[in-house]
Write a protein that binds this DNA or RNA. Structure first.
Lengths: 325, 325
DNA sequence: TTGTAAGCGTTATCAC
DNA sequence: GTGATAACGCTTACAA
């Protein structure tokens, strides 16, 4: 593999000039063409690790998410990766699998691998492990003043869900969700939902489990029986799409017809892929915008420019087959 | 950020010894502990770019896929990433978005970025661009003798689909699919399907479009009317899950009941995420095994060990709600 | 067993 | 404008 020295030798110029050429400096036309020719014939490609070693900039960032195997995260990763291309920056994918040790390991790996920065979507308390030197942007989760956050307007999303259920004819609503104690997003969705119900005199039930998904799911059938079926709820807002699908399965088992008997709205608005529309009515997070904002924010921090500390993006309602609108 | 020199200085040993320690060499216990302490107090992390520059090994590979935003690819990426962790290797995600120029750009980027190797899932003719120095493993697509390939047993999958449709009571079958001229996988699925139909005296129709997904989809309603509805087909094998979902939507528009009137089997067996089972009956590719084999094969090539040139993995039938079994 | 020093491919400083 | 050259942090002969 040809190096800058080979190019310099062939072009009969110094390595300094070649480097200047590569980095867009001003040179005489004659030298420029000589260099270009040498690069061409040698099929030269700059070794980015040498550059990284020298400049401490590697044009690589790490994306830390629970799992790529999930429609919301994979869409997010898709757009982030696409956006990064505009900045000639590569993406290292880190699935934490909701495992705290994995997260720490990844952050350490990120540091030793000298990525330029981190985009993180995580609910463990990783901020303690993040050195202030490492640029980072958080999606969805608010850590602290120092870490910029991009999030959807969860509160408005909760309100919107309640509003849509009401408009579609439901009059006895329920919220179903779970979340870690650090998870404000979830909580905000619930708060928005409740706020709407109260202002509009709507009766509402609540299933809110503080803890992990898995435990929650075990108790779910009981919860649903007690709080949904026994109380004749006819409109449900579920904290996210994934959970909503499980609720749908549960309702089906109980011979409840959706949307005839009970209407269901999820949150995320994620699709399986680019082409397949989702059957679930949902509050759609603006994933492409989240991705673009996160990348822009991170690049700005890396380049020591101004970056907003908190960005809240609007959600929209996405109609599916689980509501009667 | 502390370097190996700082560690050496603090531990009162030479950089050579520290390096030896880091790479698992034998040292006196006293030096070892001194080094360990120094590393601890300095919070030292090895700079992998310096190592990469020196050793030409970066413990990073690139995964080239059409799009991560797709259940099959995201599950695959999930398992590949997880598997790579066993080899302390990171994953750079490259979505080509089915764009040939993107693929070339990525391969060039991969070379200049000095990844250790490539795992590629692509249907364009990128092999011309791949230098023989760069280790590469192909998934699903067979390029040439030199490039190791991991694939599912597509032929057996086609047979299996026909067999299952027959067992579930269908007696007039059809294949629906499309594929580029380079795509042997698709073709093999069809061949297997046909072979079974012929050996078992089953009538079968074919919709096979040589070309791109998008064009195919435009003509699909017409195809379905002519070849499926007009000819009273009652069992369909669709070349992949994504397409199968579109067929299902089309059938629903035509007021066809699935699986009562027509049964449908897809191919891939992909799920939206870890938790949500798919409603579609499908031939399941062994994604975790594909991932593990691809990684193992690539690592072997990188380390100049023996690696199989062709690995064919068995598929299984995965029952859903679109068949009557 | 440990230390020394050259060199990997760049960039950046400083002469010229 | 251009050319030498030191330096980035590490590995690896080779020397001690």
């Amino acid at each position: 593999m040809a190096s800058i020295k080979d190019v310099a030798k062939l072009a009969k110029v110094s390595v300094g000039s070649v480097s200047k050429y590569l980095n867009g400096g001003k040179l005489k036309e004659k030298t420029t063409t000589a260099i270009e020719q040498a690069i061409e014939t040698l099929n030269y490609e700059k070794n980015i690790y040498a550059t990284g070693l020298r400049t401490n900039r590697t044009h690589t960032i790490a994306l830390i998410i629970p799992t790529i195997w999930h429609p919301f995260f994979s869409e997010l990763a898709f757009y982030i990766e696409a956006e990064l291309r505009n900045y000639q920056t590569k993406l290292i994918l880190c699935n934490t699998q909701n495992n705290y040790e994995n997260e720490i390991a990844y952050i350490s790996m990120a540091r030793q691998n000298k990525v330029d920065g981190l985009i993180a979507l995580t609910y463990s308390n990783v901020d303690e492990y993040i050195s202030s030197e490492l640029p980072i942007v958080s999606i969805d989760r608010y850590f602290s003043e120092e870490i910029p956050t991009i999030m959807s307007d969860n509160f408005a999303g909760g309100e919107l869900a309640a509003e849509k259920l009401k408009q579609a004819g439901a009059n006895k609503l329920a919220f179903i969700g779970y979340g870690s104690i650090y998870d404000n997003s979830t909580r905000d969705r619930y708060r928005g939902f409740q706020a709407y119900c109260q202002t509009h005199g709507l009766e509402s039930e609540t299933i809110y489990y503080e803890g992990h998904h898995r435990e929650f799911n075990e108790k779910l059938p009981e919860f649903v029986q007690e709080t949904i079926l026994n109380k004749a709820v006819n409109g449900i807002f579920v904290v996210n799409d994934e959970q909503a699908f499980e609720i749908l399965a549960l309702l089906q088992e109980n011979n409840v017809r959706v949307p005839e008997d009970i209407q269901v709205i999820g949150f995320d608005g994620s699709q399986q892929s680019n082409n397949i529309p989702s059957a679930l009515s949902s509050i759609r997070q603006p994933i492409p915008t989240i991705a673009a904002e996160a990348v822009r924010c991170l690049i700005n921090i890396i380049e020591k420019k101004e970056a907003p500390l908190k960005t809240v993006l609007p959600v929209v309602y996405q109609s599916g087959q689980t509501t009667r609108d």
